[in-house]
């Protein structure tokens, strides 16, 4: 039994980690009045890269971002937008220095994003699932 102890410890840690990862799931949120019930990751990526400025309904969309360097920001861009930090910066350089676009507005934290999305119908934001509540509508979750 003692010989199997390290194995049991590793398995337990893996289980705990997987639960932790599950609870850290990233979701994309919009205002409760938004007509969309779900959006594809491609469309969310296009919105966050400034390629489109409208929801599928034709309503305008203004994406909200979180500070650089936060784990959630890195994970959102890697998993949903599919860009490394340098690729993302190169992308926005192409738009900013040619007057074709500006990066999404950055808010200080997830609570600020939730607050603005709950107030403004044209907003879209992302946060950990545990932060989202009834004040906003979840339209995408990153597995």
């Amino acid at each position: 039994m003692l010989k199997r102890l390290p194995l049991l410890v590793i398995l337990s840690l893996l289980t705990v980690c997987s639960f932790a990862a599950y609870s850290e799931k990233i979701v994309v949120i919009v205002n409760n009045q938004n007509k969309a019930d779900s959006l594809s990751s491609d469309l969310i990526g296009d919105i966050y890269l400034g390629r489109t400025s409208r929801f599928p309904s034709g309503e305008p969309v203004k994406p909200l971002d979180l500070p650089k360097g936060m784990a959630i920001t890195h994970d959102f861009y890697a998993k949903v937008v599919k860009k490394t930090p340098a690729q993302l910066r190169a992308h926005w350089s192409r738009l900013v220095f040619t007057g074709k676009g500006r990066p999404p507005k950055r808010l200080s934290d997830e609570s600020a994003v939730k607050s603005m999305v709950s107030e403004r119908s044209d907003s879209i934001g992302y946060m950990y699932e545990k932060t989202a509540d009834d004040a906003v509508k979840i339209i995408f979750d990153a597995h």
Partner: peptide
């Protein structure tokens, strides 16, 4: 239009 911004390519 961004050929001077070498970081971008």
């Amino acid at each position: 239009d961004y050929s001077n911004v070498d970081f971008a390519f």
